[in-house]
Structure formats: structure tokens, C-alpha cells
Write a protein that binds this DNA or RNA. Structure first.
Lengths: 113, 113
DNA sequence: GCTATGTATAACCGTTTGGTTATGCAAATA
DNA sequence: TATTTGCATAACCAAACGGTTATACATAGC
């Protein structure tokens, strides 16, 4: 349970994705989140800490309860990375692929040897 | 380095995201990928194994080289999870939020007590 | 055939992860 | 005031992670 969290790591765990799925539909106090899983309350608290550390969940104290609210705009970091990568990927034939050309040249040399 | 990988876990590691960024632009043999990082060749091989296990990279033997090719359509799993979650999230006010209503009712009772 | 190259694999290691139980504490309730 | 409820936190644990070095091995080049 260390310091700087990032969103990619946060959503790597299936339980945390499920928690986000729940909170996406309605804000809930931690104990009501915990009811939806078989793991212990401290385990849920730990997941929640990770989710809050990277801004995916915001918590507001409500009496003795702590209301958890999803902040899914933080997923934009993921979306934009995927989009950016796919953009490059789709254009990969348009740019000269130096390595492949070099490889092909080598093969041609081999052929004429 | 165990069995069933999933895409979310694969992209959780910054080095693997960087590798995908590289391969998105051009297919490369493993050693040329390794040149772009300070970590050892076995470390790169391990990352590559994880990436291939979840289908994000395909490898084809080319003589003694192994050409790595990005398969970024596998990122659709991520994209669709994000989209699905955000959809629920954006509609969270439209559906009745049972917990919050219950909470509010309780508060009203408290007020009139 | 010998050497160099590209890569996989094994063995190992410290750190992180995801879980547990036990405990403490503040707010709500009786 | 005493008890219950809703959490956080500490201490602990096994397993997974991300890295290392050493080694093996097939292909390429001389």
C-alpha cells in the first residue's frame, strides 16, 4: 500500500473494476459496497484507498458513514492512451518502416548472392 | 509469471505500455525493442510474454529473430469497459438512487424528531 | 566447423499485492 | 452512559511481480 497510484494500476484489479461498476450506478457508503463482495471490510477499505488515491472515487463523511462517489472522468487518461496508441497503430503502414525495409533489403541481397 | 493474463493487467505496467507504443509505430524484433530500454533482455522477454499471452502482441519467427507485432484491437476490451462504466455513470441521476433516498428520509425523520 | 548473435529459460531476490484477523475509535442508538 | 455500528489501521502472510545474472541453444556469418 504505497504512495503514488496511477489509474492504469487501479483498474488492473477485477475487484476494483467491480467496485467502480457499482459506484457508477449509485454512490454508496463503504459497508454497502462491502456487502456486494465476499472479501472482508478491511480489504474493501484498502481497495477504496487505492481508488481514492488516483481520484477515481471521492469520499465524503456522512455522520459515521463514508459515502463513496465514482469520478469516472479520471478514466480519460486510459481512454486517451488507448486512442493515441491506436492512432499510431493505424498509421503504421503509411510511415516508412525502417526496420522492415532494412530487413527486406538484406533478404534481397541474400537472394542475389 | 503465471497463467491467464488479462489486458487490464498487461497495460498496468508503464514499461509494457511503452513497448506497445513502440510496436504501434513499427514491428520490431525483440532485441531492437530492448535497445529502447535500460532493462535487461530477459526482462523484455518476460514483458513480451505477458503481452503475447493476452494477445496484445503477436510474434513471428524470422530466422533467429522474433518479430513483434502489436495487436491493438485487443484494447477494445478496455475501451468497452470504460465506455460501459461511463454510460452507467452518466445516467446515475436518472435512475432512483435507493440508498440516497433512504438516507434523506432518515435525515428528515431526524429533523422532525 | 567456429564464432557471434538473438533469444528463452532457470534460479534467485527484494518489493508489492491482495488478502486475513485483531483492535481501536468516533458517531449513532438505546 | 453503555452499546452498537461503521469504519481505519496495524500486523501479518503467501503469492505474484519485476528485475537480475548465468546459461543454454538454434541460426547466421565467417
Amino acid at each position: 500500500m504505497k504512495a503514488r497510484r496511477d489509474v492504469f494500476q487501479a483498474i488492473a484489479d477485477p475487484t476494483r473494476r467491480a467496485i467502480l461498476g457499482l459506484l457508477a450506478q449509485q454512490s454508496l457508503p463503504i459497508n454497502m459496497v462491502a456487502e456486494n463482495f465476499q472479501i472482508s471490510q478491511p480489504a474493501i477499505s484498502k481497495h477504496m484507498r487505492i481508488l481514492t488515491e488516483c481520484g477515481l472515487v471521492a469520499i465524503t463523511q456522512k455522520g459515521r458513514e463514508r459515502l463513496c462517489e465514482a469520478q469516472l472522468n479520471q478514466l480519460n487518461e486510459v481512454t486517451s492512451w488507448v486512442e493515441q496508441s491506436k492512432k499510431l497503430w493505424n498509421h503504421r503502414f503509411e510511415k516508412l518502416d525502417n526496420y522492415l525495409i532494412e530487413l527486406q533489403t538484406k533478404n534481397q541481397n541474400d537472394g542475389t548472392k
